[in-house]
């Protein structure tokens, strides 16, 4: 049973706001747009999440984090549902989320829709470390599926770029 007197959609979202992205601990799963919604049913609390990439290995950890966080808050019946529609997009990240990524050393996605897929590297990606514009792509595939690997031609440091998606 879910005590609907005690727990509303908003209060549960509040409880879940502490859960960070396992790969990027400076932003929450809410800020990342992974946590989509909370539906309080009579006997179960359903949490809707959407993966950044279909094969994102962090999804298992995120689901376990949601379960344990809500259990600690006294909500035992929790169902985590993965939905693919609408498809996750970097457009869901707010400006403040992008700033947090930059400070963490990950260049934030520039945009998503106007991306020229044939030549993703054509867009200027600013170095999150020295803020230079003179950077180059090393690989479209970085440390995780959602990131590409870049190099700054000014400070010479390699860095991750969160791909437009």
């Amino acid at each position: 049973m879910v005590n609907t007197q005690l727990h509303t959609r908003d209060s549960i979202l509040q409880i879940l706001s502490v859960i960070c992205d396992p790969e990027i601990p400076v932003v929450s799963i809410q800020e990342m747009g992974i946590l989509r919604d909370v539906i309080v049913h009579d006997n179960v609390c359903e949490i809707i999440i959407t993966p950044t990439y279909t094969g994102c290995p962090a999804m298992g950890i995120i689901e376990a984090d949601i379960q344990s966080t809500l259990h600690h808050a006294g909500i035992d019946e929790v169902k985590v549902t993965t939905v693919y529609t609408p498809a996750w997009t970097t457009d869901w990240m707010t400006e403040s989320t992008k700033e947090k990524l930059q400070k963490f050393g990950i260049a934030a996605p520039v945009h998503s829709h106007c991306m020229d897929w044939s030549k993703p590297e054509q867009h200027a990606v600013i170095c999150p470390l020295c803020h230079a514009e003179d950077t180059q792509i090393i690989s479209h595939f970085g440390s995780t599926a959602c990131k590409a690997l870049y190099k700054c031609n000014v400070c010479k440091e390699p860095f991750d770029y969160f791909k437009c998606h």
Binding site: T54, Y84, F141
Partner: peptide, 20 residues
């Protein structure tokens, strides 16, 4: 190394889609 990561990243996309 970068290519190792690329191919395994693509593998992961495939496995994720297979799961779905």
């Amino acid at each position: 190394l970068e290519e190792d990561l690329a191919l395994t990243n693509i593998a992961l996309d495939n496995i994720g889609r297979a799961q779905a």
